[in-house]
């Protein structure tokens, strides 16, 4: 190329670098996306447990068929190790090995403080650690556990359950976009009443509130959830969110 063109290219080559705010904003959106995928994965696991009894699923739920039916990318094999926005602004860390077994831990590396400080949502991913209830399987139950998880969750769910899962999916999609307000809107628009997935709904609400920086409210919801469902499968997720330490002791 001629020198003039070379000079022009040289002048613009690094001209469009993103700002630190861009970098932090996208990182946060990635975190929310990954974490929200896990919440829905856990929600599906809960639905499965609720509807089909206590299943012994080796290795935990893997973000499988139900998530697929909802066209939600479950990021099951992941784990966030993140500190809260308020408590440790520079410690947004994911010690993660995506798609690797949870036991194959890698050394974690802290994100640069400038990235982590404003917006790092401490959202964990716990589906690997969502332990299904211990089952002492009798013959009948053993027979059921031989069915695949996929076939189990592919059974027709009740209209209520489908609707609830749709709500969760909408909220999750909004969180994936980093849109906490839309996530809250989706959750608020859901019909009131007894929910089979109340814990998952509350967890998404907590994550949405965290995304909006409404930490006090997030903690309040977490406290209510912890009192109403002390053994919630979402406990670990919440404990690593901005509401961690308030209503969800580990």
């Amino acid at each position: 190329m001629n020198p003039e063109t070379e000079a022009f290219l040289e002048s613009v080559r690094d001209a469009e670098d993103p700002t630190l705010a861009d970098e932090a904003r996208v990182l946060r959106a990635v975190q929310v996306t990954v974490a929200a995928g896990a919440v829905v994965g856990s929600a599906a696991a809960t639905a499965k447990l609720t509807r089909f009894g206590a299943w012994s699923v080796s290795g935990g739920f893997k973000g499988g068929a139900l998530v697929g039916v909802l066209a939600i990318g479950g990021l099951a094999a992941a784990h966030w190790g993140a500190a809260g926005v308020e408590s440790a602004p520079t410690a947004a860390v994911f010690s993660t090995s995506a798609a690797r077994p949870a036991t194959a831990a890698r050394p974690a590396l802290a994100v640069r403080p400038a990235l982590a400080a404003p917006a790092a949502l401490p959202v964990p991913l716990a589906s690997e650690r969502v332990a299904p209830p211990a089952v002492t399987a009798g013959p009948a139950l053993r027979a059921r556990t031989t069915q695949s998880v996929a076939s189990a969750v592919a059974r027709p769910a009740s209209a209520e359950l489908r609707e609830e899962l749709a709500v969760l999916a909408r909220a999750q999609a909004a969180l994936r976009r980093g849109d906490g307000a839309a996530a809250l809107g989706a959750l608020d628009a859901a019909p009131p009443g007894q929910s089979q997935l109340a814990a998952e709904r509350a967890t998404l609400r907590i994550l949405a509130l965290c995304a909006l920086g409404r930490v006090v409210e997030a903690r309040r919801v977490a406290g209510v959830l912890e009192r109403s469902e002390p053994g919630s499968l979402q406990r670990d997720v919440i404990s690593r969110s901005c509401a961690g330490g308030a209503g969800s002791p580990r």
Binding site: E16, D22, R25, V26, L27, A29, V30, T33, V34, G73, L75, A77, A78, T96, S97, A98, A99, R100, A104, R177, G178
Partner: peptide
Amino acid sequence: RLGVSRAQLDDAAQDVFVVVYRRLG
């Protein structure tokens, strides 16, 4: 520079790094 508009850049970058996150292992 490959044509993703500024308005969509956040989403596209997010998509890239979600894939990276998922596939890194």
